[in-house]
Design a protein around this nucleic acid. Structure first.
Lengths: 246, 246
DNA sequence: CTTAACTCCGTATGCCTTACGGAAAATCGT
DNA sequence: ACGATTTTCCGTAAGGCATACGGAGTTAAG
């Protein structure tokens, strides 16, 4: 709800500031509220993101925030679109589709690592803002002209986004865990391994043991999300090339 | 924290019930607590999952739950492992790797749709339980013997999981949105479209307009997550076949 | 038959969103 | 010039949440 007001806020840059405000001057701007919100979410993550923290950061009291944005969910929608516009979309390199798709995926991968809370947004229905719209257009530009149908183009973009989000989530989670628990993978195993050895039936899970050990040695930790992302992306892009050759 | 106690709870089936409890008999069992938790999460989702609701459902008062499980996070860990064991892993069909991988992906896809809250679990570090271990073993069995290195096996399993989780998340989100908002895609567009038309620069986003319209017509809605999942999975599996042929 | 251990739960602390209404401030209309 | 109107900022309160702590009652061990 509050659809109209929120969409007007999202597209505020193209609408001009409404003149003739009657009451007291606003002490801050909507943009400052959004940026403060992003700062809070960057630091604490979405679950711990609260209107009070945004207010504190701006030197306002809690309830004043509600004169700038309709509520928490709508503010998060505004933050998402703001972040999507943070780094301009680079023009697509001439050349094979493969390189273009890889660049698009990497752009989003980096974005998720800059603002991990993006992965915690459960946008019931996404707010369509200028930067989100521009993002979709840019993704389609990357794959336009390679002989795909419109439907395939949409499916391919969605697939790339879903895969990237899935991989980035694993990566971000691993990073956050290490950081804020203060416990390294090695230390964690040092605690878990002895208990598991006591509790697991010996000799169960032979493949898991072999592969897990091999992977652990190679990664020097439980996993290497960035490397796994590159691996998966390569497979996916190989598959796209198969589709193009049809 | 509480690692030891939680791991003992996870592997409780293989540990036997500890005898010689001194105080009053427990009114319910850990299994009942876990199943009640799953029921609550199925109905309300993880953010609205609360210890009080679990207690109410069992006819206990809030604080009694803490005598069964150490806390909310640990209970969720127990619920996850329980759900993974809900449907036994089917044996892998003989035949090409492609079909086996597809079956594994579909198994998880269905699971996410049965228990959407699985996608909301932010397991700082996963609790290693019997069913989770069996899951990993089963996934590796599917791809053992096709000439992949141990490292590639681990990466392939992870990639398949990441992609499936990403797609399922989109699907589950779409379903939940329609259900609990009571607003269909069509109605949502009916509200948004006129505002967007007023607010969007005309002629911006030409590709988005063309492709979005084409996709919308074909899907008969904003998107068709199940179909897009099949599309993406096909691409990914094509890519895996390329890897095998190397 | 005492004592130790355990279950169940009341209470309290400290978070969160947001509905509502009041006081003060700034502009509009006359 | 000055009231009416609109808007901002904010206090309060309602209704949610997890969980620390400690007490009362229950059971089995010694």
């Amino acid at each position: 709800m509050e659809t109209d007001r929120t969409l007007n806020l999202l597209w505020r840059s193209r609408l001009g500031t409404p003149q003739g405000a009657r009451g007291p001057k606003q002490r801050v701007t909507v943009d400052e509220v959004i940026r403060a919100g992003i700062a809070v979410a960057d630091e604490d993550g979405l679950p711990a993101f609260s209107m009070r923290k945004v207010a504190d950061r701006l030197g306002l009291k809690l309830m004043s925030i509600y004169t700038y944005v309709p509520g928490r969910a709508e503010l998060i929608g505004l933050m998402v679109d703001e972040v999507i516009g943070e780094i301009p979309h680079p023009p697509h390199p001439p050349g094979p589709l493969r390189d273009r798709l890889a660049a698009v995926a990497r752009h989003m991968w980096d974005e998720y690592h800059r603002h991990p809370w993006l992965l915690q947004v459960e946008s019931s229905r996404p707010w369509i803002g200028p930067n989100g719209s521009e993002r979709y257009e840019w993704q389609l530009e990357a794959i336009e002209g390679f002989g795909l149908t419109d439907l395939e183009m949409d499916q391919l973009v969605t697939t790339l986004c879903d895969f990237t989000a899935g991989s980035a989530r694993a990566s971000v989670l691993a990073r956050r865990t290490t950081e804020e628990s203060g416990i390294s993978d090695a230390e964690w195993w040092q605690v878990n391994a002895p208990i598991l050895e006591r509790v697991m039936p010996p000799g169960a899970y032979p493949l898991a043991g072999r592969v897990g050990t091999a992977a652990g040695q190679e990664y020097n930790s439980v996993g290497d999300p960035a490397r796994t992302f590159r691996f998966g992306l390569d497979r996916l892009l190989d598959g796209v090339e198969t589709l193009l050759r049809r």
